[in-house]
Design a protein around this nucleic acid. Structure first.
Lengths: 202, 202
DNA sequence: ACGATCTGACACGAGGGAGTGTCAATATGG
DNA sequence: CCATATTGACACTCCCTCGTGTCAGATCGT
């Protein structure tokens, strides 16, 4: 083990490690988001990142740990984009929020693969669940008469799941070229579906 | 290689092989539908079926081949249940069809796992795609003014995908205990969503 | 310039699963 | 009862991947 920490290429030891971590996260997003999780090996990640296994295990103890970090990163980035849009456009007009969220996925097919397809099995089900639950909570918080009728709350939870599934499936179909529309048109349709599904919304 | 075919336990060679194939298919549905595809090994299938690898490779050349056969079987069984319901109840009333199809999944969580979760990746995407496309075709065939407006056809394809995703996600949420409702209530809600999403339907 | 640290390429053993082969035990037809 | 088909258990090899170790060369502090 090293006795002193020196600077290399104008970067401190911590900066270099953080840089390598970023490269590994980027490689993870690329490979997990294209060829998929099960088809991705540690050596593939290293090759994609331009690093060696030494630095992989410096930052992550396993592929699963990298995977969780990648998804966490992506979700944090998405929420960071959506939150200010909600704050500025309000709740009565869901279009900006839907446009931001869905548009981000349509712009990057890797997000579709990672967030919709791959999160169905393995260690990501927990994150998928938590994300949907948070979205439901945020949504219910904006509902006018929440916790008035408990069965209505269950209904809205079901509707939220249904809409999440609808968006995901459409995104998958679009990403695989089975729907020939512009992103704007797709967002239009999904917004319309949202208005039809969500009770007393917009 | 055997020179003559003898009967064992009152069954001919072909009957015995067919019996073993059934056992393997049942084992596949059970394991693929519970622990998942990637967590299932050839030896697991054999143990579940009460057979040895010899008879696995007698019927299938790989796990993927068994998997395709299992899904094909399940889908054939589902369509065999749905088709007569459609024939007897007609198109204007989608409830019986939805009830049959969705009810089958709610009755057997393995179907949810196999058809909704596991079909997102690997060799099953093709079958998932084909099944949805067939459902879309069947549905469009019943639409009053099909192929009148090509853009309307694209719209209906999108709506079909959206509804398929909605049903799948709700089924997953129900199978994992995140929605506490009776199957009847869930079918009610999904039928209502269907009526709201599908244009001029029901 | 020199010693120590950092880096990258590769070697190595461990572990698990696929696919095949072996062999004794069992059941059958004659 | 005997020869043979059939079966089940298991050993065996091969290959892939993980995680760690090794070592020469590059880079920095002094």
């Amino acid at each position: 083990m090293p006795q002193t920490r020196r600077t290399y290429r104008g970067m401190s030891a911590e900066e270099r490690q953080a840089e390598r971590r970023k490269q590994l996260l980027a490689a993870g997003l690329e490979l997990f988001g294209t060829r998929g999780i099960t088809a991705t090996r540690v050596d593939d990640i290293c090759a994609e990142a331009g690093l060696t296994k030494r630095y992989f295990y410096e930052n992550f103890s396993s592929l699963d740990e990298l995977l969780l970090a990648v998804v966490e990163d992506v979700l944090a980035d998405l929420t960071a984009r959506v939150v200010p849009v909600i704050a500025s456009s309000g709740w009565r007009n869901p279009r900006p929020m839907l446009s931001t969220f869905i548009g981000a996925m349509l712009d990057d097919p890797r997000l579709v693969r990672l967030l919709v397809i791959e999160t169905h099995s393995g260690a990501l089900v927990r994150q998928r669940h938590q994300f949907i639950e948070r979205a439901i909570d945020v949504w219910l918080e904006a509902a006018p008469d929440r916790d008035r009728d408990p069965s209505l709350l269950q209904t809205q939870r079901l509707l939220a799941h249904a809409y999440a599934g609808a968006v995901g499936e459409v995104a998958v179909a679009w990403a695989s070229g089975r729907i020939t529309m512009s992103a704007e048109e797709i967002i239009d349709h999904l917004e319309r579906i949202f208005r039809r599904i969500a009770p007393q919304a917009g």
